[in-house]
Amino acid sequence: MTERGDVIYEARNVGKRYGAVVALDDVNLKLHAGEVVGLVGDNGAGKSTLVKCLSGAHNPTSGQLLLDGVERVWKSPHDAIQAGVETLYQDSGLAPHLSVSSNVFLGREQLKPGLLGKMGFLAQKSMDKQAHEDLERVGIAVPASGRSVAQLSGGQRQAVAIGRAVAWASRVIILDEPTNHLGARQAGEVLHVIERAKAQGLGVIFISHTLPHVLQVTDRVVVLRLGRVVKDAPTSEFDADTLLGTITGLIAD
């Protein structure tokens, strides 16, 4: 577990301003293959802004993003997704009226072979089958991928959303509050999926307010406060009290 792979994703001196408001200021973050980095901070610390920059939803005002050592400028989330960077946003990853398999394949639908495919016709059976396999592979058992997501419970939806992201991610997966609103058992399952993703060699960025989860699943913790990184250290250096103290600023940097 202490063996880390190469740096796969890096934010170098990243800054983001919205008019006069400085949301991120000179943020540095390195993510290694097979590593889970916890990103924590109080509300307004800049976690969401950093996630948006890393996932391609926003562009940083200054600084660089490097994937596998190569500088990247994301034109859209789609750009980042295609490069292997998957993001699971807080509470809004799925289309509830669509089936589980339609959600897993959303935005990268398989088309029928030949002319029908060129006209945009979907290879639904093949997607149903593969969605089921993909979710099982990352540790999620779904009874029927034809069922609409609205019929699943909150925990099941979250499991599908994470399974989808893990199944597609080839380099990096960013999880924004994935254990929010989940019961203890369901949260445990989500953490298990994260461990599997890590074992596959993905880099995982885990954003959470639930500090016990952060301490349980991460290898390293990056603490943001008022848009700056105030601490970047191995998780073993923290316990619940010192982590909370660092987030709130009660413990000096």
């Binding site: 859209s76 993001t87 946003y89 809004s92 289309a95 935005g107 990268r108």
Partner: peptide, 13 residues
């Protein structure tokens, strides 16, 4: 997908 959750559709590319 867009009618169900436009945010998810956009996030899916």
């Amino acid at each position: 997908a867009i009618g169900s959750n436009a945010f998810a559709a956009r996030a899916a590319g």
